[in-house]
Design a protein around this nucleic acid. Sequence first.
RNA 1: GGCGCCGUGGCCAAGUGGUAAGGCGGCAGACUGCAAAUCUGCUAUUCGUCGGUUCGAUUCCGACCGGCGCCUCCA
Length: 469
Amino acid sequence: MPEFRLYNTMSRSVEPFAPADGETVRLYTCGPTVYNPAHLGNFRTFLFEDLLRRALRLRGWKVEQVMNLTDVDDKIIKRASEQGKSIREVTDPVVTIFHEDRKYLRIEDAEHYPRATAYIAEMIQLVERLIANGVAYLADDGSVYFAIGKFPAYGRLSRLDTREIQSGARVAQDDYSKENAQDFALWKAAKPEDEACGAAWDSPWGRGRPGWHLECSAMAMSILGETLDLHAGGIDLVFPHHEDEIAQSEAATGKPFARCWSHGEFLLTDGAKMAKRVGNVQNVADLRANGVSGAAVRHFVYSTHYRKQLNLAGEALEGSMEAVRRVADFAERLKDARGGTRGLEDAADHLENEVRNALFDDLNAPGAVAALFDFIRAANKELDAGGSDAGALSRAREVFAMVDGIFELVPDRVNADAAFAQWVEQQLEERKQARARRDFAAADAIRKGLEEKGVVIEDSAVGTKWKAR
RNA sequence: GGCGCCGUGGCCAAGUGGUAAGGCGGCAGACUGCAAAUCUGCUAUUCGUCGGUUCGAUUCCGACCGGCGCCUCCA
């Protein structure tokens, strides 16, 4: 089994990776803030993490993944206030949509999806530890802050040592009375609007709510233990989110918070970061409306390395839709095949090796996908040649299933309703008869009629197949 | 201003100190009654520009041009 190598943001280099106990990778991934459906940029990160967990399993490890759902934060409170709802009323529907979207993109279930509001007690305990350790303080405004000056390692992950506000940097908006502008809130004193929407809890420091960073540390350590094997997220979380997670976790436990940090790059739209503020977001609902399958999105995302910005532009998505059609046709063909050849078996062996090597080399998805397409061409060629080797065929099916079990590029079959399918079959029968009497004009007219209904047909020696397009 | 990333064919995009993966598209051919699917061949003498190191650089170094991201809302 080749060594698994992964880029570690902490060291800024590709390093060998293995879980501490040699068996189970304890993986924490920062999830969505559920005030609005996640957009494709968010999902690029979740797709990266999906591939990561599948690759780790391919390597032979178990994976225990936590993806948190941030269900209390400024934006949620703002929305709840505007709509006269509780935060729960705002977040519940969005959580439902998140999971639907996630399934559409075939992102596997993580083992845990903790909601921040379910871990308030753990967060309070963590803050108490930090206060006891002298690295957190209660300010005049009733909020508790982390004193970054008390944590010498602060800034190691992001390598942002100079914290002065420079020209060009965004200016911090100070809503709270901190001792140091760079200190971050662990616990925020409740404001009237927080109380109004159910975003306030009792604490030793009075009514309040958790700061954003606190939830991840509390949930990660509660569920996975004080030292994670791997912590992943979007590149923008490096600073301040992950920096602050490290500070508050390590200052509390005295142990390393994560053994490895992995960050996925952004999705751009026509060259600009996809973001609400830019106004260029697309979400899964938009894709569905345009007939873009989850499989096509996966192909698109996995065509670029996770540490490189990916530009949603040009005909890229259309290309992925077509590419995935090719994979689906091949899958069908492999399923229906009656036998294989020695060459088919060799191609399968080669594919398995290539995929392992690529994926274990810092998650080189493009390389693995390229190997898959090489295999499809080679296998189509072998299948064209016929062959009756049952062992070779089953080997090809096995490896293809393994690879597609990782990338999931075969789109869901659109199940035409029964009446429509019956109508299509009837048309095909009529066309068959027309062809039998060599009335090709009639046969072509039927085919044209089917195409107008979105049905593509393929004649072959064993009959005519059709598929909805 | 600080930190970092990127610039490869029409589009998306791998990769390596030794002469360019893969997908989409296009062109031609095989197969087909015609298609579709599939297969075959062709489609970057070249990897932003200019220098340098080297026997040799797209790959290393420097400068420049262009694009992007982070510097407490951020996947």
